[in-house]
Nucleic acid binder design. Sequence first.
DNA 1: GCAAAAGTGTTAGAAGTACACCCATGA
DNA 2: TCATGGGTGTACTTCTAACACTTTTGC
Lengths: 234, 234
Amino acid sequence: MININPYVSVDCVLLGFDGERLNVLIVRQKSQNGEVDTGSYKLPGSLIYMDEDLDDAAQRVLKQLTGLVQVKMVQFKAFGGANRLANPSDAVWLERFHNLEHHLERIVTIAYLSLLRIDRKMQTLESGYEAHWVPVTELPPLAFDHSMIVNEAIESVRNMTMLNPKMLFGLLPRKFTASQLREVMNTVSGQNIDAKNFHKKLATMPYVVPLDEKEEGVSHRAARYYKFKASKKE
Amino acid sequence: MININPYVSVDCVLLGFDGERLNVLIVRQKSQNGEVDTGSYKLPGSLIYMDEDLDDAAQRVLKQLTGLVQVKMVQFKAFGGANRLANPSDAVWLERFHNLEHHLERIVTIAYLSLLRIDRKMQTLESGYEAHWVPVTELPPLAFDHSMIVNEAIESVRNMTMLNPKMLFGLLPRKFTASQLREVMNTVSGQNIDAKNFHKKLATMPYVVPLDEKEEGVSHRAARYYKFKASKKE
DNA sequence: GCAAAAGTGTTAGAAGTACACCCATGA
DNA sequence: TCATGGGTGTACTTCTAACACTTTTGC
């Protein structure tokens, strides 16, 4: 039997861009035998194991609850209010889910964050795991303090992307058009960059390189594709 | 007896500016009865209580180990490597310090950060508590992974101050000169702002207001004092 | 007067903003 | 040929960087 740490958990906030809006990945709050204990949704997250690094725990939990692997996540904040388990049904659910014998007193959770795009692969994953993408503007009430965690995650993304715009490329397909990139930036920053000047801004980004390919089958002038270049050499 | 959570701790990285350099506040790794168990230094930090918010724990621990109160700290990262207690003497020290009976398995620590100035009050505090300001460039080896935590704290400060330069005013006295502010910015950012252009930059900061006072008793032209203005109205 | 640091002015170039206009494509 | 969105060019403003010079103070 694996040794569970009953005081520390990880939660994963996956923010996915579907081409138009930001979405959050949430799961049903159900027990391990499959029966749904509460009608609530929650973030993918769980208590950690005793001998497990936090980063490893986040990866494991995400895989167990959503099937997703190799998602690059970064830690963004710990949530440790003494009354995080204020809702009794949340505490009871946790104890049952983990088959714990003793009463859970309080849990500090380390929240992780990832930015990614919602592609076809992401859609098919939903069926097996009861994981759902929900637009951030239409988020239902979540268990624990997960609604607060989502809000702080989005705030955190805004700050992070100001310092490091490259993060945003996780939200786009390998090949993307200028307006797709602009749309992502507008969505995340909440601002509205002028479309007419955006090409000049593009030219100043050394990590964005134009390709010779163009869109096909669109009912207007075909847009050029770009790709993200990680290193400095061609 | 107060109930201790044996899995979660807080650590405080206080960065103090003495007018020239950035310093970190460190304490001796000694036991509660006063005998020094190891020769090492560490950050002020401790396990949390079971019914204590993380933010409250950080304030309590800082007061207990350094006597400082009402220091504004912000959480900046959780450190949760499974082998943080790899050094056996650190684990033993912790168990003795907290009078714990069972063996400590692993601890996740939530690191807090503060920027402040080292004034006369800060100096006198040292004698009672064995807390010392040490320049970040001359840091001795610290217990646990505290050296890593300090490094990440400084990195974090750089990022935070880019987004919110107002943070830096905690490092200065109420009245400060332009070159003091410039010196702080240079120290924290690692850059070197041109002194000649700095006044123009000052004029664009709505939250810095010039005073009519000037320096006295300096052997060169007296510099004007400025103050920090928090709100938008005069 | 001299040293030392405060503070101002000028200029050139880079970067951001607004907006007019042309281009390619499907219907 | 029209609607739609892609893309370029020009002019204007604002920000930044480099650097020369003047001012105030104690010795």
